[in-house]
């Protein structure tokens, strides 16, 4: 140990004052004294947060899904049952929206990929580096606006007196407005509108990393443009496709407000089924919890399987 410092008197800066303060010295020595203590200090808050705030809710949800009732009336103990889970498998009103949500989200994910891939490719490979940021910002701005406002904007676009119908009428293609709204179509347009950024960014960053000379080398070897695309660009952007698709799929399955606003009776999504168990009858929480658990397990499993198929391992999921 170095000998105790002698401090002279006089006015000090805050840091000098702190360094000379006996209290701080002893707090610092006791909290930061060893490597282990420093690690504990650094790790405690994030790890407790991750467990309490991130894992806690999911475990509690799983737990409640096996209750016979929740919230409990005073003095009543919950008994464990699988009734809530069973309800899902025997009630078409529940499992149909569930499968509809999965299939619909899957289709939308693919549609988004097909729509956004050329955009990302153009941005990453054809826009000069110096202007990429500008072109990217142009498409980023609309995504900063919230879900509800953008959903509303789609309503205005697709309504019976919306821009599209008016334009079609004006062009003489139709006499009567096409009822776009409250259908799977309007919902699809809306969801793609909401999620395409999550496809664009991973694709863009994957495509941007492919060296240009790869394509030139292949061209030298006599590969035509399509062959080059299938054999080189597409495989090399696989990571981007994988994470883009997973993100879009997970987000798409989780929308609640958009299907309620844009969708119709034939396009009820599972999120609404889940929400109804909370809104309508207050004692059906276990059902909602079971439904959410089923959805969580299914979507995460599908995402993991998909990533596995795409050959992404050990890279995290983002």
């Amino acid at each position: 140990m170095p000998p105790q410092e002698e401090y002279s008197t006089g006015s000090r800066s805050f840091w000098s004052w702190l360094a000379t303060s006996k209290v701080y010295q002893s707090v610092s020595a006791s909290l930061l004294g060893t490597k282990k203590r420093r690690l504990v200090l650094l790790a405690a808050v994030p790890i407790i947060w991750a467990i309490v705030a991130n894992l806690g809710p999911l475990f509690k949800m799983l737990d409640i899904s096996f209750y016979d009732a929740y919230p409990l009336s005073k003095g009543r103990e919950a008994t464990y049952t699988i009734a809530a889970w069973r309800e899902f498998f025997v009630t078409p009103v529940y499992y149909i929206p569930f499968f509809r949500t999965l299939i619909f989200s899957g289709i939308l994910t693919f549609a988004t990929l097909v729509l956004v891939y050329p955009v990302a490719y153009f941005l990453a490979r054809h826009v000069p580096k110096s202007r990429q940021m500008l072109f990217l910002l142009l498409v980023l701005i609309p995504f900063w606006v919230g879900e509800i406002i953008r959903t509303y904007a789609i309503m205005i676009l697709l309504g019976n007196n919306g821009a599209i119908n008016i334009a079609l009428k004006f062009l003489g293609i139709i006499d009567r407005p096409i009822p776009f709204m409250y259908t799977s179509f309007s919902l699809g347009i809306g969801i793609v509108y909401l999620v395409s950024l999550y496809m664009l960014l991973p694709l863009y960053s994957a495509l941007e990393k492919i060296p240009t000379n790869m394509n030139e080398a292949a061209a030298d070897l006599g590969a035509g443009p399509w062959r080059r695309f299938w054999r080189i660009t597409l495989p090399l952007s696989k990571d981007g496709i994988a994470s883009g698709c997973v993100l879009v799929f997970l987000i798409a399955t989780g929308f609640y407000a958009t299907p309620v606003i844009l969708g119709g009776p034939s396009s009820t999504m599972f999120a609404e089924s889940i929400a109804n168990t909370f809104n309508v009858a207050a004692d059906r929480w276990p059902t909602g919890a079971a439904f959410s658990s089923i959805m969580l397990i299914t979507t995460l499993t599908l995402a993991a399987v998909f990533l596995k198929i795409m050959g992404r391992r050990g890279k995290g999921y983002l």
């Binding site: 509690k60 993100l247 889940i274």
Partner: peptide, 28 residues
């Protein structure tokens, strides 16, 4: 890796599930 996955977990949870889980949790 595990801590990283746990901390970033909410980023990949479907919105409705995250909301419901938090609703239940805050109630408990």
């Amino acid at each position: 890796i595990i801590v990283f996955a746990l901390i970033t977990l909410p980023a990949v949870l479907p919105g409705i599930i995250s909301a419901i889980a938090l609703r239940i949790y805050s109630q408990t």
